[in-house]
Amino acid sequence: MGSVTLNNIRKSYGAVEVLHGIDLQVEDGEFTVLVGPSGCGKSTLLRAIAGLETISDGEISLDGQVINHLPPKRRDIAMVFQNYALYPHMTVAKNMGFSLRLAKESKAEIDRKVQAAADILDLAPLLERYPKQLSGGQRQRVAMGRAIVRDPEVFLFDEPLSNLDAKLRVQMRSEIKELHQRLRTTTVYVTHDQIEAMTMADKIVVMRGGHVEQTGSPLELYDRPVNVFVAGFIGSPAMNFIEAVVQGGNVLTSDGAMLGPAPESLSDGARVTAGIRPEDIILADSGAEAKVGLIEPTGAETQLTLRMQGASMVMTTRDRITLSPGDAVHIRVAEGKLRLFDIQSEAAIR
């Protein structure tokens, strides 16, 4: 068992509060990803769970036991660091077995566990090497191996892939995911990369400025973002935002083009922020007018930058198109895909 409950976690450095009361429930066996822009407090929160950072207020519990005041070693939590943090003077085997050695386990037992973890991670041929003799991806795996041998209740990862090149990153992403499916150990994974979050998570926690903005499954966040920030953060290319106004039960752009129906809660003349995902823009015979800017084919799909009056939007399409830059087109929003946000509070309007 390894369910983690965070209750109103606050953390201040001197007079500056960087976590403003975080509540979070991580179920046993769940892969939870904390995502958010740099400096939003993801690492601080993760380190608080690890016990490397004290918290100013709140409660961290593991399986219902409050663990706030326990040192890291007594929390039964393992962590994988961004720079791997391998011990350079120890071989791969020694690195992986270090925690067991400190726990005074027998030599035979240590060897057995290290071997088992090495088999899982394809590290067996590298056990006698030193970290500096390994590639980035191999070091990453050793860092994971060090966590696995302990068989902890919870794994913590702090941006473990950000030092790898793009190709290796994709490969390690699926390896970590597979590892999780195999071991089913509760995992909290920090990243600033929303694609990593979307592809790996059972549950995503979007953070900004020391607050949790929204928690949910990847598709929940994608389909029903609670505010402009989450809507813009999740998804790539990002959601388009334009100012719009409600008239006669419809949402219109500032130059009067129709975007879609307005919900009944909005009265005529209400101003809103309209959010449209790139793949929800459809080329049509009539509708809002736009000029084609950039055309970027990526093979499977094509990305178009459209210039509208006072705004610019990105659309993607899987159709092969025959447009060229400067062409005039008409666009509309796919049915039911228009998202509206309050122009002041930026909260979603349902």
């Binding site: 490397l52 070693k73 939590i77 660091f81 720079n83 943090a85 011990y87 350079p88 270090f98 400190l102």
Partner: peptide, 25 residues
């Protein structure tokens, strides 16, 4: 590197063990 010290804390090393097995090497 601070991360090595922290990794050893996670691995369960007390102050003396951190000094002996991480700092000294």
């Amino acid at each position: 590197p601070n991360e090595q010290i922290e990794a050893s804390r996670m691995d369960g090393a007390n102050a003396f063990e951190r000094f002996r097995f991480v700092v000294i090497p």
